[in-house]
Amino acid sequence: MILKIPEKLLSIAPYEPGKPIDEIEREYGIQKSVKLASNENPLGPSPLAVEAVKQSLSEMHRYPDGSWHRLRQKIAEKFKVDPETVIIGNGSDDIIALLCHGFLSTNDNAVMPFPSFLMYDISVRAAGATPVRVPLDNLAIDLDAVAEAVDSNTRMVFLTNPNNPTASHFSSNDFQRFIKKIPQDLLVVVDEAYIEFVRDPDTFNALDNPLSDPRIVSLRTFSKVYGLAGFRVGYGIMDKSVANILHRVRQPFNVNSLAQVAAAAAMDDVDFLNTSIRVMHQGVDFLRAELSAMGLTTHPTQTNFFLVDVAQDARQVFQALLRQGIIVRAMNAYGFDTCLRVNAGTESENRAFIQALKKVLAGGSPKE
């Protein structure tokens, strides 16, 4: 069969998610591996979320709530906004795609930092528009350069705060200077997937004063601090006019029933949320201290992960750690050839990583 493939799709490199633990264990012949590669919550999901899902299983013959009423109300109440300004998605990347399909077309462009979340680039290209990548400045998003990259064809700007994969952040003052340079007729999408982990009070938080500027779309997720990555639930808070467009292009049942139930219950589990944040902070501090004691450079972070420079080819160190049962992320594909990205795990997982890395580095440059 000969198919005519749209040109806009041929330019897209497929997103490559990390392999699941069981596949990696089969491939490398390891057991009881430690995964510190995907910035997940090592404590698992909230017990309240687990119990709520169990109680809802008997209703799975019914379609999901296509308006996400309960979850939408809880989010609206938390941030004191109109429920009509809240959009729920199958992960925040679902909302990113909806924004691109709703507001971008051929001849348009969207400006974004690079490296950052790869789904910005992919979603923009899938909509037929052009991504404009703005290089980071010493691992941080260069807001001045982002503003300068905006031209008459720009319809959207993506910002990640804190940024992934570099864990850097920008302040409220930095953002206020930036937004004054941005035209009134485009959207500024602020992806705040890791905002709950932030410790610097000066960090810009779009929901400190939600909907104060109709250009700003704030994206959040239940995948990280709430420990619900497998359920795929994200949400956005945006001007009603923007939300109305997304309703026109989204699927009618884009978030499944169990995901909605889990997310709503997780929002009630404040103790679990606070414990997760505390454990992640303790884990990051422990890991960075241990790595610094080993003579390795760790980069500043406002998230549950950070970059560590291992002073040699990160891919080889990554492979050697895999054979020790430790799963992290090599950053070669992002241009950081000697850096690993590591997220904090439980205390035992963190210690296992440190022990394995010491063993790998003591052996000299690891071989494939």
Rank of each mutant, 00 (worst) to 15 (best):
P115G: 09
F175Q: 01
D174A: 13
V86F: 07
A127Y: 01
H101T: 12
D93P: 03
S152H: 13
A149W: 01
V86W: 07
N173V: 07
G91S: 10
F114G: 05
F114Y: 14
L143Q: 07
S168Q: 14
R177H: 07
S152D: 15
V86A: 04
P135L: 06
Y120Q: 12
S123D: 03
F158C: 08
N164A: 14
V86P: 05
L104P: 00
G91C: 09
S152R: 14
E84T: 10
F158G: 03
G128R: 07
F170L: 10
F170W: 01
N107W: 12
P131W: 04
M156L: 15
S172A: 13
S168P: 04
L118K: 13
L143M: 07
N107L: 09
R155N: 03
R125M: 14
F103L: 11
M156S: 04
A97R: 07
D144M: 12
T85W: 05
I122Y: 03
D142P: 03
I96Q: 01
P83F: 06
T106G: 05
D93I: 11
A149C: 05
D108I: 13
S105V: 04
S168L: 12
R155T: 02
V134S: 04
L118D: 14
N164Y: 14
L159I: 08
D174C: 05
A147V: 06
R177F: 09
D142S: 08
F158M: 10
V86M: 09
A145Q: 02
T130P: 02
I141W: 03
D151A: 09
F175H: 00
D144W: 08
F170I: 02
I87P: 00
N163Q: 08
I179E: 00
E84W: 10
A110N: 07
D121L: 14
N173T: 11
A127G: 02
D93H: 13
V111K: 00
L139Q: 11
A140W: 08
F117K: 14
I179H: 01
L118F: 13
V111A: 00
G89Y: 03
I179A: 01
F175G: 01
I96P: 00
Y120I: 15
T130Y: 05
G89M: 08
F117N: 09
S116V: 14
M119L: 15
G128M: 12
H169E: 08
S172Y: 09
L136N: 00
S168I: 05
I95S: 06
D142G: 02
L143I: 09
V132P: 04
F114V: 13
N163H: 11
M112F: 10
H101K: 14
L143W: 08
L98I: 09
H101Q: 13
V146K: 01
